[in-house]
């Protein structure tokens, strides 16, 4: 079983991201489970959401303390929240950052930095980064296919909004694939 923890702020779509990644994983043919850290949601407050991936049925219900993957939607969280807590050796941390990170990740953990806000502004016209980061996650982790992610996004959004979000996911996917 592999586990993903998403750190964001209320309003950034962390829970939606977790749900869509789980839907995409399901469409990619594995068992998946997505759930939020059940807080009292407030815009701007630090939030977490979780995804599990497994080749067999998932029974575990606890929150995720030793993730294989971490997505940080907003790098300003790093000074408030220990986003790297418990990440497994060989794990991947994907951080949305404009300036680049000055903090270091734990030994043996791969750090991928992406300016998802800039990409989202260019493609979507709004600084909502979750579909961009999902595309980057698909490329970095290999847990979900780009096709399954596109399908999941199109089920959730419609019309030009779906097209733009698919374009954002694809651009980030290509960027990470190209850079990897």
């Amino acid at each position: 079983m592999r586990e993903l923890r998403i750190h964001g702020r209320g309003g950034q779509g962390s829970v939606t991201a977790a749900e869509l990644i789980a839907v995409a994983a399901f469409k990619s043919g594995v068992y998946s489970q997505a759930f939020p850290a059940f807080g009292v949601e407030r815009r701007g407050a630090p939030v977490q959401a979780f995804v599990r991936f497994s080749d067999t049925k998932i029974r575990l219900r606890s929150q995720i303390y030793e993730p294989d993957y971490v997505i940080v939607q907003d790098s300003t969280l790093i000074k408030d929240v220990n986003v790297f807590s418990g990440v497994k050796e060989g794990g991947i941390v994907l951080v949305n950052t404009e300036k680049g990170l000055d903090s270091s990740v734990p030994a043996g953990v791969k750090l991928i930095q992406i300016d998802a806000t800039k990409m989202a502004l260019e493609i979507l016209g709004v600084p909502i980064t979750n579909t961009t980061l999902m595309g980057a996650f698909a490329a970095a982790s290999g847990e979900i296919t780009l096709a399954a992610l596109e399908e999941a996004v199109r089920e959730r959004f419609s019309g030009s909004l779906a097209d733009k979000n698919v374009a954002a996911a694809r651009a980030a996917f290509d960027l990470i694939k190209g850079g990897a």
Partner: peptide, 12 residues
């Protein structure tokens, strides 16, 4: 069924 733990979790 357990609130949040089942009610707010996505699974197949």
């Amino acid at each position: 069924f357990d609130g949040f733990i089942l009610s707010h979790t996505y699974e197949p």
